[in-house]
Amino acid sequence: MGHDTLSGHIHTNYHLMVDANMSLDTINNMMPWERIVYVNLYIESLKKKKEEHEKQRAMARHG
């Protein structure tokens, strides 16, 4: 899931707190399956943002 290590776990928590506006208490109190769902939703949203950004860059280049 992206946090096989302590460092990965801390990074995941950090990004959920900063980018998804979740409190550390909320994250820590999640059931394991809830955390998986929220992390996967967050990853999906990042992928969509990246795709949109790439589309915009391609359109800007071509005119």
Rank of each mutant, 00 (worst) to 15 (best):
M1F: 14
M1S: 11
G2T: 08
G2S: 13
H3L: 01
H3C: 00
H3D: 13
D4I: 01
D4T: 04
T5L: 13
T5Q: 11
T5I: 11
L6R: 10
L6H: 14
L6E: 11
L6T: 09
L6C: 09
S7N: 03
S7P: 07
G8L: 09
H9F: 04
H9T: 03
H9N: 09
H9D: 12
H9Q: 08
H9E: 10
I10A: 01
I10R: 00
H11N: 09
H11L: 15
H11D: 09
T12G: 04
T12H: 06
N13L: 03
Y14C: 09
Y14Q: 05
Y14A: 05
H15N: 06
H15F: 08
L16N: 15
M17A: 04
M17S: 06
M17E: 06
M17K: 12
V18E: 09
V18C: 10
V18F: 07
V18N: 14
D19R: 03
D19L: 02
D19G: 00
A20E: 02
A20C: 09
A20H: 11
N21I: 01
N21A: 13
N21Y: 03
M22V: 08
S23K: 12
S23R: 01
L24D: 14
L24N: 10
D25S: 13
D25Q: 09
I27H: 10
I27F: 06
I27L: 07
N28E: 06
N28C: 15
N28G: 08
N28T: 08
N28A: 09
N29H: 05
M30H: 05
M30F: 04
M31T: 00
M31Q: 15
M31K: 15
M31S: 00
P32S: 12
P32F: 14
P32A: 13
W33T: 01
W33F: 00
R35I: 03
R35A: 02
R35P: 14
I36G: 11
I36M: 15
I36K: 15
V37A: 04
V37L: 08
V37G: 02
Y38Q: 13
Y38F: 04
Y38S: 04
Y38E: 13
N40I: 01
N40L: 11
N40F: 01
L41F: 00
L41N: 07
I43F: 11
E44S: 06
E44F: 02
S45Q: 13
S45R: 11
S45H: 04
L46T: 02
L46E: 02
L46A: 05
L46H: 06
K47F: 07
K47C: 02
K48A: 00
K48H: 12
K49R: 14
K49N: 08
K50I: 05
K50T: 11
K50L: 05
E51Y: 08
E51G: 00
E52H: 04
E52C: 01
E52V: 15
E52G: 13
H53L: 08
H53Y: 12
H53G: 00
E54P: 09
E54D: 14
E54Y: 02
E54N: 01
K55N: 11
K55Y: 06
Q56P: 05
Q56C: 02
Q56S: 13
R57W: 04
R57I: 02
R57Y: 05
R57F: 03
M59N: 04
M59G: 01
M59W: 10
A60K: 15
A60I: 00
R61A: 01
R61Y: 10
H62V: 07
H62C: 08
H62T: 11
G63N: 13
G63E: 15
